[in-house]
């Protein structure tokens, strides 16, 4: 009887401890990728099967767990466009149109394999719960499940190197387990102020055979912003933050 009680007590405490570890691991991974509030520059490159490329340069600002905004700096055809994400809400401001319009996470403002949720990425821990953590050699394998139906990918398989707790590969899946895209994290680089993380994210998708998109990050640095920066009314003025 004592053994059964002891086993049940261990079981009772084991599950929360395990879940906590996974969540802490995911939180750690988020902080290793970015400060909680920061500014950065990114280049997105879409590569077609014949090797032709299309590039976009963005200035991105993020605050807390659910606020992120991006401004297109290049090319000329996109310059001045901005995107804003507040939790599950996303908007696109096009200077020609002159007003923000709501967009959805599965659309892509740049075409290519990256969608809006990839471009306006929040912390993983903000959108996903850790269902299971596996230790596989020098890597962790985290099985993530979306917290709500409004998250772009229902499930994620995230591989991270154990030593530096940095992602190496992320597979994005539908609720039925179908692979939508794979993100590969490459070229670990020192961004200064203790931030060492992959500078390049490559992605491909079985939905876009032989196409590839690449995101290159630069000048990531911690910075605090007023909440008012992350509003529709401010979208035409994002350039003033640079």
């Amino acid at each position: 009887m004592k053994h059964i009680v002891a086993f049940l007590v261990i079981l009772l405490f084991a599950a929360p401890v395990f879940a906590l570890d996974g969540t802490e691991l995911l939180n750690q991974l988020d902080r290793n990728l970015n400060p909680e509030s920061y500014e950065s520059y990114r280049k997105l490159i879409n590569i077609e099967p014949d090797g032709r490329k299309k590039e976009f340069t963005l200035f991105t600002v993020k605050k807390g767990v659910d606020k992120v905004a991006s401004l297109f700096i290049a090319p000329a055809s996109e310059k001045g466009r901005s995107t804003l994400r507040l939790g599950d809400n996303m908007w696109l401001y096009i200077p020609n149109v002159g007003k923000p319009i709501r967009i959805t996470s599965l659309q892509s403002v740049v075409g290519g394999v990256f969608n809006n949720a990839d471009i306006l990425q929040l912390d993983y821990a903000a959108e996903y719960n850790v269902e299971k953590v596996e230790e596989q050699g020098s890597e962790y394998l985290l099985h993530l499940k979306a917290k709500t139906k409004t998250v772009a990918y229902d499930r994620i398989r995230l591989r991270a190197e154990r030593e530096r707790t940095l992602p190496t590969k992320i597979e994005c899946l539908t609720e039925a387990g179908m692979l939508i895209k794979t993100l590969y994290f490459k070229d670990v680089k020192d961004f200064g102020n203790g931030l060492i993380r992959p500078a390049v994210i490559e992605t491909d998708s079985p939905l876009y055979k032989n196409y590839k998109s690449i995101m290159i990050l630069a000048k990531i640095k911690a910075r605090n912003f007023k909440d008012e920066v992350f509003t529709l009314t401010f979208m035409p003025n994002l350039e003033s933050l640079r």
Binding site: Y41, I45, A74, I214, I216, R242
Partner: peptide, 19 residues
């Protein structure tokens, strides 16, 4: 493919464009 020339993100006090 991985080049990111940071000079292209330098902010200028003016801009000019169009189509």
């Amino acid at each position: 493919e991985y080049a990111f020339d940071l000079s292209e993100v330098e902010k200028k006090p003016y801009h000019f464009g169009g189509y």
